[in-house]
Write a protein that binds this DNA or RNA. Structure first.
Length: 489
RNA sequence: GGCGGCGUAGCCAAGUGGCAAGGCAGCGGACUGCAAAUCCGUUAUUCACCGGUUCAAAUCCGGUCGCCGCCUCCA
């Protein structure tokens, strides 16, 4: 089954055919670095990480560019608030974003271009647009894109230019040729950061950096351009207009937009005060649990964030790790696995691939992963035999492989299940120390004491010890090989 | 007003023409000293509602109701 992708421009799923066989060039709009990234950013970049990983698994050579907008009005404003230089603000939040992405296990893009490092390319593209009659400069040094000069304007987002101009929400600026014209270059006021240009000192408009940088690294026409749904208009519409007006060639083959994270079915926003940063969430939630939650729904649908949803995801992740633990504890074996089991494993694999090929349906793929966990647990319940162990080894490998495709199941299962005990920093975010549990050596000693009591049939004492541990969040599991423990998730 | 999306069990969520995946929670059973974990079974004759097309619809078409997003900086 071929890979299909929903294209926002055509509003349909289409079979994916890259421009250059075996190669995919993808650009995703990154962040404006003026504040810590929030869960909405996490959703976007985890979703595109899953897409990135699937393309790699399909053996495409992927060039993935994700930019930083490191000069912008919001950064300038934030710099004034913090009494810092604008570029220090940008540096600080680029570092913060990098740390968040690393904590979430997002694979680094191939290129992370920054607007301020591409001023010559940006100016060159603005000049092209002026030369071709698609842009005009004002006396004050602002340069605008003339939407009237580009008949296809509105085609990406399905809007009609006349309708938009009739809309009451467009501010009328008499200096512009058309109310919908947007800034390519903004003249700077005294004291603001500025770069020299043919129109005087200024800085780039928001949209131009993405068309200039994406085309520099990926070519005039490239395969996939992504971002949050809100960017469809005006950002991507404007990008497309700039790029196609400047080159006369189609800009992007597949436009991909992720849906929003919502809080109680409402948009998350600073003004509503229902705002969560990635760092906040990782204080109490482990990164893989957050990832499983973020990927549990299709990337185009809205995703409702809540404590319950995070808990459910954590419980599911525990189930997967429990299966992985059972699978990895099997003895090494070179026996042939029983065909019926082999078939189940292959079926789970096929279901996973089918889900991912169908517009990156991670929710369906996760279902397949749970199916594999069930197979694993059933197999683990069989009488020990070389064939069983061989099957379990296959399960272990497949759980790791498919889990890895979603960026989960990367830890040692035993450590994961006991993770919050004794040791801090499981999440890589120092604050996790707050969730620190009892000392593992002490737990083992309690278990030994309970074992002795059980042997003596002193079940009252055994239960007392177990209850004490349960109260501390330590769950005991008595099995044929003795008692295991794990932390309650 | 324009454009787009959503409404599937107690909760979350796949499925876009052929007997309704999966997770969480619940219930019954197996296992266990009792539990936990795990396994087995069970939990929607039904997919917001009303009509229509079809041998066959959650899936296609028309309408109704409800919710949300974009149209303004925004992942």
């Amino acid at each position: 089954m071929p890979l299909t992708i929903y294209n926002s421009r055509t509003r349909r799923k289409e079979p994916f055919t890259p421009i250059h066989p075996g190669e995919v060039r993808m650009y995703v709009c990154g962040v404006t670095v003026y504040d810590d990234a929030h869960i909405g950013h996490a959703r976007c970049y985890v979703a595109f990480d899953a897409i990135h990983r699937h393309l790699l698994a399909r053996d495409y050579r992927v060039t993935y560019a994700r930019n930083f907008t490191d000069i912008d009005d919001k950064i300038i404003r934030r710099a004034a608030e913090l009494n810092l230089a604008w570029d220090e603000v940008a540096r600080r939040y680029m570092d913060s974003f990098g740390a968040d992405m690393a904590a979430l296990g997002v694979l680094p893009p191939t290129i992370e271009p920054r607007a301020t490092e591409h001023i010559p390319e940006i100016i060159a593209q603005v000049q092209d647009l002026v030369r071709r009659g698609h842009a005009y400069a004002l006396d004050n040094g602002d340069v605008y894109f003339a939407v009237r000069s580009f008949p296809a304007y509105g085609g990406l987002s399905g809007r009609d230019l006349e309708d938009m101009m009739a809309g009451a929400r467009v501010e009328v600026d008499n200096r512009k040729q058309s109310p919908m014209d947007f800034a390519l270059w903004k003249s700077s006021k005294p004291g603001e950061p500025a770069w020299d240009s043919p129109w005087g000192p200024g800085r780039p408009g928001w949209h131009i950096e993405c068309s200039a940088m994406s085309q520099k690294y990926l070519g005039a026409t490239f395969d996939i351009h992504g971002g949050g749904k809100d960017l469809l208009f005006p950002h991507h519409e404007n990008e497309m207009a700039q790029a196609e007006a400047a080159t006369g060639q189609p800009f992007v083959r597949y436009w991909v937009h992720n849906g929003f994270v919502q809080i109680n079915s409402e948009k998350m926003s600073k003004s509503l005060g229902n705002f969560f940063t990635i760092k906040d969430i990782l204080k109490t939630t482990r990164p893989e649990g957050l990832r499983l939650f973020l990927l549990s729904k299709h990337y185009r649908s809205p995703l409702d964030f809540s404590e319950t949803a995070i808990k459910d995801a954590a419980a599911g992740l525990e189930r997967l790790y429990t299966a992985l633990l059972a699978a990895e504890q099997a003895a090494d074996s070179d026996a042939a696995p029983v065909p019926a089991w082999l078939k189940e494993i292959e079926q789970a694999n096929a279901d996973f691939e089918q889900g991912m090929d169908d517009d990156f349906n991670t929710a369906g793929a996760i279902g397949a992963l749970f199916g594999l966990a069930r197979t694993t647990n059933r197999l683990a319940g069989e009488a020990p035999s070389p064939a069983r162990d061989a099957g379990l080894k296959l399960c272990a490998g497949k759980l790791r492989e498919l889990g890895g495709r979603l960026g989960i199941l990367k830890e040692d299962p035993q450590q994961f299940l006991q993770g919050q005990a004794g040791q801090a920093g499981q999440t890589g975010q120092g604050e996790a120390a707050a969730a620190q549990g009892p000392d593992p050596a002490w737990i083992e000693a309690q278990i030994a004491a309970r074992q002795a009591a059980r042997k003596a049939k002193n079940f009252a004492e055994a239960d007392r010890i177990r209850n004490e541990l349960t109260g501390l969040g330590v769950l005991l599991e008595d099995g044929p090989q003795g008692t295991r423990w794990r932390m309650k998730g």
